[in-house]
């Protein structure tokens, strides 16, 4: 690899808060690294562990799940259910050797465009530091 390592990051964002927050970052023209590609779900409560594992299996170096702040979930408590599940998935990716640091759960509201950009920038840097996941992405 001559060019520096560019991590591949998959994001899952809920329609009501974080996806809207990402849109707001756009409308406000706040810049962040292009490594993340977002897949929209209605709620983080829809993010089944398999989405995370499949992402890593397909070569993602990092996965970000973003949803509404506690109490703000459009479906009452999908985000809290997700948080509980992500705790286990983090341990799972830990013992698999993927590393917990490659999986992030963040709360970003629809009004936090700046925060969305910050989270993505910071997470991208973190994953860049960690280097490529020695899975498929290495080729």
């Amino acid at each position: 690899m001559n060019k520096g390592f560019e991590p591949n990051i998959v994001g899952f964002a809920c329609n009501w808060c974080s996806y809207a927050g990402a849109d707001l970052a756009g409308t406000s023209r706040i810049k962040y690294p292009p490594n993340i590609k977002i897949i929209r779900v209605m709620c983080t409560g829809r993010v089944t562990p398999a989405f995370i594992l499949k992402s890593f299996q397909n070569g993602a170096d990092g996965v970000l799940v973003a949803g509404c702040h506690p109490g703000d979930c459009h479906y009452i408590a999908g985000n809290l259910k997700c948080e509980k599940i992500m705790d286990v998935v983090k341990r799972l990716v830990g013992i698999l050797g993927i590393g917990k640091e490659r999986l992030r759960l963040e709360w970003v509201s629809a009004s936090e465009g700046g925060r969305f950009a910050d989270v993505v920038t910071e997470f991208t840097e973190q994953v860049r530091e960690l280097g490529p996941l020695s899975g498929k992405s290495q080729g």
Partner: peptide, 9 residues
């Protein structure tokens, strides 16, 4: 995933 070259824990 276990067939990848990952260092498990």
């Amino acid at each position: 995933l276990q067939s990848l070259n990952l260092k498990q824990d």
